[in-house]
C-alpha cells in the first residue's frame, strides 16, 4: 500500500485551523464593533487603506485568507462524506477550487490597494 499524498491538503488545513482558532474571534469582534457603530480607529478609510497597502500586511492578509478558506474547505469535504455524500473526489475538487478562488480574489484586490 502506497503512502498517501494527503499531507498536501492536511498540512494547510492544520495551519489554517490554528490560525483561525487564534485570530478569527478577535477579527469578528472588530467588524462587529464597526457594525454596532463603534468602529475601531483602524476602520477609517485612510488608515485601513494605508494598512492594507503595506506589503507585509498584504502578505499576511493573503496568507490568512488562504489558510482560513483552505481549512474550511477541508472540513467541509470531510463533513460531506460524514453526511453520506460519497462522491469524495468531486466534493474535494469543488471545495479546494473554491478556497483557491477566494484566495486569488483576495490577492487581486490586494494588488489594487
Amino acid at each position: 500500500m502506497a503512502q498517501s499524498n494527503k499531507p498536501i491538503v492536511w498540512g494547510p488545513f492544520a495551519a489554517g485551523g490554528t490560525i483561525t482558532a487564534f485570530l478569527t474571534p478577535v477579527l469578528i469582534l472588530l467588524t462587529l464593533l464597526a457594525a454596532l457603530g463603534h468602529a475601531p480607529d483602524l476602520f477609517a478609510y485612510g488608515r485601513m487603506h494605508a494598512f492594507a497597502g503595506h506589503w507585509l500586511a498584504k502578505a499576511a492578509i493573503a496568507g490568512t485568507v488562504f489558510l482560513s478558506l483552505w481549512s474550511t474547505a477541508h472540513r467541509l469535504r470531510i463533513t460531506c462524506y460524514d453526511l453520506g455524500v460519497r462522491a469524495d473526489t468531486l466534493v474535494a475538487v469543488i471545495v479546494y477550487a473554491g478556497a483557491l478562488a477566494g484566495t486569488a480574489a483576495s490577492v487581486l484586490y490586494l494588488t489594487r490597494i
Binding site: M1, A2, Q3, S4, K6, W10, I78, D82
Partner: peptide
C-alpha cells in the same frame, strides 16, 4: 509501518 499507516486507508481516514 508507514506503508500501511500513512496510506489513505491508514491514518488519513481519521477525522
Amino acid at each position: 509501518r508507514q506503508e500501511e499507516i500513512a496510506a489513505t486507508e491508514g491514518v488519513w481516514e481519521c477525522s
